[in-house]
Design a protein around this nucleic acid. Structure first.
Lengths: 145, 145
DNA sequence: CTAATCCCTATCAATATGGTATGATTTACT
DNA sequence: AGTAAATCATACCATATTGATAGGGATTAG
């Protein structure tokens, strides 16, 4: 029940990009990886996932970089995690009902999974990257360095 | 962000045991594995985890088996999952604050993790094995076989 | 005594994770 | 035109986890 670094690193990168959105700035992978202490090549792969999901757009070539393809208040954490991790489902059977599991209908745990998933999704879908960026900025002001 | 079969199988076994609790019955690993279609040896290891956490108690020897060591309404899903998976934390930094991560205090994602974890735990701690067993039974009545 | 059961540990294949490396392509700038 | 900076696309790899199998010992009801 762990969230992998894929989700964590990628989300942090998105928040970082969100702080740059209003000033119309771009961030390169080099900048992002430096600001967050993440390996360049690894981050490259994560950004590729975000790009495939149309959450960021790239400008290639020298002086290129990435920026959010939508305003940060229109990007939910759920979307980001889904792009990075494939799905936010705790258990497969909650989204793809009964493909691989043959006793879904008589599963003792299914009601719990559904309830749990519902609560998780409600948080993920109601929180935007803008919210996180705001939290981040006020946090930084209180505790610089 | 997946829950492994460890947690799923183990939890289902606990619910199975809960249905037997009132009639003071025991269930052997052979019975449990048969009723749920899980490998005997694998289930054995999961039950060992539950035993170590004092959630079930065993009687050894012929005609032995397992039963819950407490009434099912006093066992929360959270306890069970913690015993099986080690922790229910989505991200390490939410319980062991700042042991491995050196920028906890300036992490853009931390407020989100805390909020998310809070919601998850509230479900896990307020749901008992008894609740799940009840759900299971009524579900079975509606849809026998 | 014996069969049934818990108990314990070693092993293993498959997959996911987290990361490195390398080279090709595109493009701004001089 | 040339070059440096950047994205893009793969291939590779070490390690850990997962999900299981196997085998044998210890305990106990009948």
């Amino acid at each position: 029940m762990k969230l992998s670094t894929k989700g964590r690193y990628g989300l942090k990168a998105m928040v970082d990009l969100a702080t740059e959105y209003d000033s119309d700035g771009k961030l390169s992978i080099a900048q992002l990886s430096e600001r967050q202490g993440i390996s360049y090549s690894y981050l490259e792969q994560l950004i590729a996932l975000l790009k495939k999901a149309h959450l960021v757009s790239a400008s290639r070539g020298a002086a290129g970089g990435y920026r959010l393809s939508r305003p940060p208040e229109q990007i939910t954490v759920g979307e980001v995690l889904k792009a990075l991790e494939g799905s936010t489902a705790l258990v497969e059977c909650v989204d793809t009902c009964g493909t691989d599991c043959d006793n879904v209908c008589s599963c003792a745990a299914r009601p719990l999974w559904l309830k749990l998933q519902q609560r998780i999704d409600s948080v993920l879908e109601s929180t935007t990257i803008r919210d996180m960026a705001n939290d981040y900025i006020t946090q930084k002001e209180r505790n610089p360095k």
